[in-house]
Simulated assay, not measured.
Amino acid sequence: MGRHGRDRVVLVHRLALVRLAFLLVGDQETAEDVVQDAFAAVYRRWGRLADRGQVLPYLRTTVVNGCRMVLRRRAIIGRFRGHREVPFWSAEAAALLGETRRQVFLAVRALPRRQREVLVLRFYLDLSEAEIAEVMGVSRGTVKSTASRALKVLAVNLQEER
Rank of each mutant, 00 (worst) to 15 (best):
L111I: 05
E99W: 08
S128V: 04
V143N: 05
G98F: 02
D51R: 11
A95L: 07
V9C: 13
A41T: 02
L111P: 06
R113W: 15
T142E: 15
A50E: 12
G78Y: 09
A38V: 01
A147N: 02
V108M: 06
L119Y: 06
A130P: 00
F39W: 06
R8D: 14
A150E: 08
H4R: 15
R122C: 07
V135D: 09
T146R: 07
R52I: 00
D33E: 15
R149H: 14
T61N: 09
A41V: 00
L121Y: 04
E92A: 10
R60W: 00
S128A: 11
Q103H: 12
A93P: 00
L17W: 05
G141N: 14
D7T: 14
L125F: 00
A155D: 07
E32M: 01
L56E: 08
R116C: 02
A147G: 11
G5H: 07
I132N: 01
Y124N: 11
R79I: 02
H83D: 14
A38P: 01
T100G: 04
F39S: 05
A94E: 14
G5Q: 10
M136T: 06
E99K: 12
L11A: 15
V70F: 04
V108P: 09
R3A: 09
K152W: 00
A75Y: 10
V64M: 02
R79M: 14
L20M: 08
D7S: 12
A107G: 11
F88W: 13
W89D: 06
R162Y: 09
L23F: 08
A94G: 13
A130Q: 10
R116L: 05
R73G: 09
T30E: 13
A110Q: 10
Q103C: 03
Q115S: 11
Q54W: 00
V55K: 03
L49P: 01
E99R: 15
A21L: 00
